[in-house]
Amino acid sequence: MTESLVQDPAALARSCEALRAQAWMALDTEFMRTRTYYARLCLVQVATPEQIACVDTITLPTIEPLLEMIYAPHTLKVVHAARQDLEVFADIRGAPPAPVFDTQIAASLCGYDDQIGYGALVESITGHKLPKLHTRADWETRPLPADQLHYAEDDVRYLRDVYRFLAQKLEALGRTDWLREECAALTDPGLYRNDPREAWRRLKQGQSLPPAAQTLLRELAMWRELTAQQHNLPRGWVVADTALVEAALVAPTAPEALGRIAGIGGPPARKWGEEILQVIQHGLELKPERLWEEPQRPDRRQQALYEQLQTRVRAVAAEIKISATLIAPRRELLKLIAGDSSGSLARGWRRALIGEELMQLCGNPAAATAT
């Protein structure tokens, strides 16, 4: 077995050649995002049954040969808690690689905790206890210390055994297709598009604002997202969330008033003040809209129905030994009660397992139509 830090094109070519014929690879990344909007990829760790390679994406002039292997549709990518890793690749190529086997999701379908960490899963399956020495390491520093490199290797070293164990257990339980369905959703390119027009949804503080201020906040959030993307800066380095909400509420139209808002006055006002005032002026000319729906408390009948559905879900979950919230979180049950059949309970393995029954209990006509 070869374990090495890949820092030159010839070594990268050899590693990629070894990956070419593999049906699956264990995959992890190390990246930094403290000073940028887009993550800076620092290291990519890959492992096959015979090889571990840590590809130095900072030193190499290009990692395109590796990306070709990672994006190969015939190769299954085994990743733990894959969302952030897939987002890094989606930023580079516009879409995440597929197909994927997420070991955190696989573990949850096998009865482990929904959000089980990699270290806990490795210890449970292999008996090996991983050290927690470099969880907040600086991965941009070169040369990489030997113990930090060993830590990075471990992120894929034991992932191979975890994958084999979980794949066999899923097959024995008849849930391989369940995981395939979950991971297909995880590799939907739409999950990784930060549409500036939808940036207001991140600002939960806006729910309490009046419609005119919500409309203005939408425009300010779109401006901030575009600015952060264009300058590759963290959103908070452009304008903090609290300052953005305050600006939407106060709606200043003059530099002096804008400068009095905490978090905008000073450097942000000097750098972005004119643009912010233009966005505010534009927002004030728009028709006010209520973007966030006012929360509706379930009435007595709906609450009784919710409790009935929840009791049934818990019974099924206990029977098959997985988490009830994995099958049907509260928001999905409330969707069914409201007559909304667009949620996860109306399709796939959840519908076959219990969704059909729950829709019938709700009197939902969609229960009679297969999706």
Results as ranks from 00 to 15, higher is better:
E246W: 00
Q278T: 13
A90E: 02
L173W: 02
P255K: 13
G348S: 09
A72N: 14
R33P: 09
K132D: 10
I92C: 08
L233G: 01
D28R: 08
F31I: 03
I327Q: 03
Q308F: 00
K77A: 01
Q229K: 14
R301C: 04
A324D: 14
N364G: 04
I280V: 14
E30N: 02
A315P: 00
K271L: 13
D340Y: 03
L121I: 03
P145T: 07
R347K: 14
P329K: 10
W24C: 12
D8L: 04
K271Q: 15
Q214K: 03
E123F: 04
P268Y: 07
V46D: 04
A262Q: 11
R330L: 00
R260H: 10
V313E: 08
A90C: 08
A11S: 15
L67E: 08
P131D: 15
L133K: 15
F165A: 12
R201K: 15
L130Q: 04
T227N: 06
T215E: 03
V79M: 14
P131M: 07
I280C: 06
A315V: 03
K77D: 05
F89Y: 15
R93W: 01
W292R: 03
A367Q: 08
Q45E: 09
V162R: 00
L326S: 13
D147E: 14
D161R: 10
R136P: 05
E356N: 06
R347C: 00
T62Y: 00
Y118N: 11
Q205A: 13
L361P: 01
G259Q: 08
A95I: 05
M359F: 14
Q303W: 11
R300N: 03
E140Y: 01
A269D: 04
E68D: 14
Q308K: 12
T75V: 14
T176W: 07
L121W: 08
H80V: 12
L361T: 03
W292H: 10
W349K: 01
A243P: 00
